[in-house]
């Protein structure tokens, strides 16, 4: 296991002005295990505690309680050893705006212990990988958001770490760059590098990661592979708008092929397996119950349905 965390907690004491303080329980007991060469995602809404968790694992923030071992070393007692083994790309990026990206990359390489010529070779490789060679000598402040992200990533990988932390790596990227980044993350895994990334994009967690945890209010509410988590909910979901929602829910809940129903505002979601085959039966049931359907759609269950099931609200309107 490259990451083993037990009951990690972090309580911040935030100033509220006029000398008053407030306790913020950012992380409230998180257990994690991530194995070598795995893409692991922490999915959760804003303020869920993703960044705080990553910061504790990356030795930036000391946990209030709990323990974590990263690459075999304790994150508090052996922080220096952990730092040799990780790359960390923060949510903010962390590339010096005033210098050319190449300089930041070279400095990071030298700090990681490379000689001057090794550092040049390594920087050259990374610039090539992330197609940055052309813009390596321009001050970073003149680059676009996506180009800066790629520099941040290159710097995070400079010491060939067996584990990288990517805190919301795709926020602010256009679809093209997002897809490129996904490819780069997959390439890392193929070389045996473990990746722990955070995201609040459902499709990203679904498409990219081998396993994930869903974090809400500082706690893990679900854990597993995307497939397993979705299967626990059901294969498919029928979303309905009805005039009489309560009786519709009662009627559908009584059907044998319906696993679960959930009413939210004016929509009713019914979870079922093998939706294509069961949809006709569902329609017949509603018709014989005399319920008028205003709209209906059938879709595969997503991680949002998983989130909804575990937290009672949709990730789209969480936060």
């Amino acid at each position: 296991m490259i990451i083993e965390a037990h009951d990690l907690r972090k309580t911040f004491v935030a100033r509220r002005g006029r000398g008053k303080t407030e306790k913020v329980e950012a992380v409230r007991g998180i257990d994690l295990t991530v194995s070598e060469g795995e893409i692991f995602a922490a999915l959760g809404p804003n303020g869920a505690g993703k960044t705080t968790t990553v910061r504790m694992l990356a030795t930036f923030t000391a946990p209030t309680s709990g323990t974590a071992r990263v690459a075999g070393h304790d994150v508090v007692k052996e922080a220096a050893k952990v730092r040799e083994k990780i790359g960390y790309v923060s949510q903010a990026g962390g590339v010096d705006d005033n210098a050319p990206g190449r300089e930041s990359l070279l400095l990071a390489a030298r700090i990681a212990g490379l000689s001057r010529s090794q550092a040049h070779t390594r920087a050259g490789e990374l610039l090539e990988t992330f197609s940055l060679t052309e813009i390596a000598d321009r001050p970073v402040k003149t680059l676009s958001g996506g180009q800066k992200r790629r520099f941040a990533l290159a710097i995070g990988l400079v010491n060939r770490p067996p584990l990288v932390f990517l805190d919301e790596p795709t926020t602010g990227l256009d679809p093209q760059n997002r897809a490129n980044l996904w490819d780069e993350v997959r390439a890392l895994r193929d070389q045996g590098t473990g990746v722990l990334l955070t995201t609040h994009y459902l499709d990203e967690a679904d498409a990219l990661c081998d396993r994930l945890v869903i974090i809400d209010h500082g706690m893990i509410v679900a854990e597993g592979t995307p497939e397993k988590l979705k299967r626990e909910v059901a294969g498919d979901v029928v979303t309905l708008k009805l005039d009489d929602l309560p009786s519709g829910e009662k009627l559908l809940a009584a059907q044998p092929y319906i696993k679960e129903t959930r009413a939210e505002d004016d929509t009713l979601r019914a979870y079922l397996d093998d939706g294509e085959h069961n949809l006709p039966a569902l329609l017949r049931a509603l018709e014989s119950g005399g319920l008028a359907i205003r709209s209906i759609s059938l879709a595969r269950a997503t991680l949002d349905d998983v989130f909804l099931r575990h937290t009672g609200r949709s990730l789209r309107d969480a936060a």
């Binding site: 930036f60 730092r83 040799e84 960390y88 903010a92 990026g93 590339v95 700090i111 990681a112 941040a152």
Partner: peptide, 20 residues
């Protein structure tokens, strides 16, 4: 003053968890 910005833009955060 130059360092205040670096407390926010992640530069110091990155250096703090580097081998520096």
């Amino acid at each position: 003053f130059t360092m205040i910005n670096e407390t926010r833009n992640g530069v110091l955060e990155r250096l703090a968890v580097s081998q520096a």
